[in-house]
Design a protein around this nucleic acid. Structure first.
Lengths: 234, 234
DNA sequence: TCAAAAGTGTTATAAGTACACCCATGG
DNA sequence: CCATGGGTGTACTTATAACACTTTTGA
């Protein structure tokens, strides 16, 4: 961008940190590499940027290759560029995705030897991928403290107990159920359905769905669903 | 990062959005390009990543070249990679810096034909640099609503009226002085000095300095110095 | 003495937190 | 009929917002 000194051309990659929630735990989708370098080791799904595509396009493509999903929540996280982060000089732009784990097509697992891992029990990853995952977890905790992104991890209809255990999982803390419900309903984001989910209790828990209009309009508002959401790092 | 298809190597650049505050306005430091491409037009200061350096190192180097400053606030903003953002395919990692405009060595202006511009009266910039600046302004508004980053723009000693007009400038709003002072003192970040700044009133305004220990420890805390800090975009 | 900016308190409203019991149901 | 998880209300504390007058001083 400035004067012409020697211009070093480099590989530029995109790596995706894909989060899902199975009703109990936050999980990350990893692949066991069937190719060099580092064949046989676990890594994030990624790929090189091609000449014709933008970063966002590349990230969406990679996400689609592994999950079969389009139009899901995907956000640029950070660019990583330590000279020795990869055997050949490569800059990687990391993205994180939040997907409904049930929409994910399990068949695609096999092509890529992919597997979901609970975020607290992850294998060693190649290159700086462990660092990327840590930064992504931090970012989600930071952002979800004020914006309703965690809904992206849930199916269209979900129960309050599910939602609460999602927040409790992300923040590794117990949340008072009465305060949680009050804050939730003050957002006006939820619409109560007739139907109940009877799968996890005799009484059953009512399903809710998102009010999509309000969701879009309040997406940037500060919601504060998480108590004591201080000391979070961006 | 995934299977070997054709690997396209690209130029990777760093561009710096450098913010300063002159006591009245937030300003951005731009250079008039003395080199191709786009010679004679205004742009951000930038440079290509070299083979041996990390992204942060490159950004710090570029900042130093233009300002003579080291160790100032510098944060990665976003990676830009539209295929046609630049005549030759280039990925640019944008950083933003917050500097004390008085520390800046004016001599360096001349080497680069640099000039400070009020953020509301900026010239047309090359490539996607206008977009970068917009995103940087947004980011600062978002971040400064909860974290005390704006102190990075002030000299070691500063007055409350200066600080307030800084916030008023960033958010383009008037802030109630009594509420502002109360919130400020509840943070415990400021230490009152004996000395007064007599330059802008007969009465004079007391200088304050940052309590650096508390500043570091509270840097991640949510401070909420900005009223109605909602509807801010990350 | 007055113009111009600095500095200071109170009250009302809203939000957050802590806390414990009843409800509905299937087995 | 009882064990299990779902659902609800109240009182207290804290934070925020609105609001106007007095102080200091150099010219």
């Amino acid at each position: 961008m400035t004067e012409h000194r020697e211009k070093t051309r480099m590989l530029v990659a995109v790596d995706c940190i894909i989060f899902g929630f199975d009703g109990e735990h936050i999980k990350i989708l990893l692949i066991k590499r069937g190719f060099e370098p580092e064949e046989g080791k676990w890594s994030l799904m990624g790929g090189f940027i091609e000449a014709h595509e933008s970063l966002d396009e590349a990230a969406n493509k990679i996400l689609f290759q592994l999950t079969g999903l389009k139009g899901v929540y995907l956000e640029q996280l950070h660019a990583f560029g330590h000279p020795d982060r990869d055997p050949e000089r490569t800059i990687s732009i990391a993205y994180f995705a939040l997907i409904d784990i049930l929409k994910y097509e399990t068949k695609l697992h096999e092509n890529y030897h992919a597997e979901w891992f609970v975020t607290t029990e992850m294998p060693e990853l190649i290159f700086d991928h462990n660092e990327m995952v840590e930064i992504a977890k931090q970012k989600i905790r930071y952002k979800a403290a004020h914006h309703p992104i965690l809904f992206e991890l849930l199916p269209k209809k979900f129960t309050i107990p599910q939602l609460q255990s999602l927040y409790e999982g992300v923040y590794n803390t117990r949340i008072d159920n009465r305060n949680f419900v009050r804050k939730l309903s003050s957002t006006g984001l939820l619409i109560k359905l007739e139907e109940k989910d009877k799968s996890s209790s005799r009484k059953g828990a009512f399903y809710f769905k998102l009010d999509k209009k309000k969701y879009k309009s309040k997406f940037q508002a500060f919601l504060n669903l998480v108590p004591n959401a201080e000391d979070l790092i961006d």
